[in-house]
Amino acid sequence: MSISVEIPTLLRPLTGGLKRLDADGATVYEVLQQLEQRYPGLQDRLLKDGAVRRFMNLYVNDEDIRFAQELATPVSAGDCLTILPAVAGGAAGEGAR
């Protein structure tokens, strides 16, 4: 049994439209590494400088990995890794006039 990964609409163009994938690994990072081999470009959308991108949320079994061990959060067979773009923004970014 492997880890089930939920892909958001935004990233499905990179997974051939697939909404759910299976992958293996002992940590979130290992799972993402394996996915990157199958779906090149996916990791860049999720990570920057070795950490989860600011506007991307990753959850293991519904828990935000920021409140666990981030990318080192352990996963095991049967776990679910959910990827969800954050709902965030605001006028702070230059460009709002």
Partner: peptide, 20 residues
């Protein structure tokens, strides 16, 4: 937006994650 127009900021555009 409480101190600017109702236009997308750089952060709004960078964060937008729901294509639909």
């Amino acid at each position: 937006h409480t101190g600017s127009r109702a236009e997308p900021s750089r952060d709004d555009i960078a964060a937008a994650g729901e294509p639909d």
